[in-house]
Nucleic acid binder design. Sequence first.
DNA 1: GGCAACCTGACAGCAAGCTGACAATCAGGG
DNA 2: CCCTGATTGTCAGCTTGCTGTCAGGTTGCC
Lengths: 219, 219
Amino acid sequence: MRALAVEDDPRIAADLQAALTAAGFRVEMTGDGEDAWFLGDTEDYDLVVLDLGLPSLDGLAVLKRWRANGRTMPVLVLTARGTWQERVEGIEAGADDYLPKPFRMEELIARARALVRRAGGHAAALQEAGELSLDTNRMGVAIRGVPVQVTALEYRLLAYLMQHRDRPVPPTELLEHLYGDDDAREANALEAVIARLRRKLGPGVIGTRRGFGYFLEAA
Amino acid sequence: MRALAVEDDPRIAADLQAALTAAGFRVEMTGDGEDAWFLGDTEDYDLVVLDLGLPSLDGLAVLKRWRANGRTMPVLVLTARGTWQERVEGIEAGADDYLPKPFRMEELIARARALVRRAGGHAAALQEAGELSLDTNRMGVAIRGVPVQVTALEYRLLAYLMQHRDRPVPPTELLEHLYGDDDAREANALEAVIARLRRKLGPGVIGTRRGFGYFLEAA
DNA sequence: GGCAACCTGACAGCAAGCTGACAATCAGGG
DNA sequence: CCCTGATTGTCAGCTTGCTGTCAGGTTGCC
């Protein structure tokens, strides 16, 4: 059970970490909105506890951006004042449950467990597309169940394609994701990575739509 | 790892036995409360899975009598209806974790493992990965049963890897865990510790996945 | 056919990681 | 308070294997 707790108040953060850990979660913490967004977008958690009052990027915005990107992990939202409007706002942004401060840790844990249970025990640590499967926890790749060694860069590429498997991803976007847009590479660098991956994975895994981009072939 | 499962529903009992066995436990079963109490009181288990709804002697009563007798093994309680009161009742009776039915076996196993891992001072706290074993009580390390002398820092590193043995742990995360992120060290400090540990433990214990991180071989 | 997008094998540069040596630091004892 | 040994961070030089670039090929589209 992997959990992400987003909370900027150090005291509450410490309590959260203790309680979640005691409840059997492997806990990761952050107090920064940007940081939270990145983690939630790239890692797979079974549960996210999200405080709305954050510096650098508001909690609601973080949540909306996750949902917009198709991330579906259960999110439990914490907020200082539980007004009616705020509650609706939270739910509409994609929160699965909502807990107004102050709250008792026991209740938080109980709700957290309920959420996780409802989500089916574990959010997909295994993502699949056709014959390809990614284990986002152990950073492993397998083709038809057979493990394949890939490098960190190759893995990031696959993970990104997996996350957007519903559409072809244009090379520019991939380049921007793999390297910063500031640090420019030749477009060919990407093609090289793709070629190496295809050699490892075999045919029928990574497809090309000329002019549109790359995609993972569905079953 | 020795486990006792107390469950009167034959179908669930069979599933429990299968799942726990597959997870590496040596499993003993009983469906009777008196029987369970006697076993738990006289034998040493690393884990007990206890259903509350039992004939002849209620699960809660069994648990209370164990605790009253000073038995401290980790107990995971199963119950049909997960109301808040029942939950508190279970915890107060001395349960270490609580799982409402229906549940998925995967979740039970995950929680069971978490319990055993954090059992800490009570039941035998031996964690193993391949040829390596950690005694979390006495902070001792042994390789294939032969004790190895390690320093405090080295031990903390091993313990962290052990706790996350299902995935490669990136150097940044290790650095952050070993030292505070505030107090910055050269990345090389970590490599030095790893090198020293490898010299002590021999090959085939700490592995590297370039670009991903370090891990314990042969979970 | 010609152009542009894309592929691929080879290769060199480079960064991640390893290791031995040494110095700074810490802990404990006199 | 200093001495001593153990621990641990830093440095320098090394190995390894990832990865960007290049050159040349292939494919699809107008």
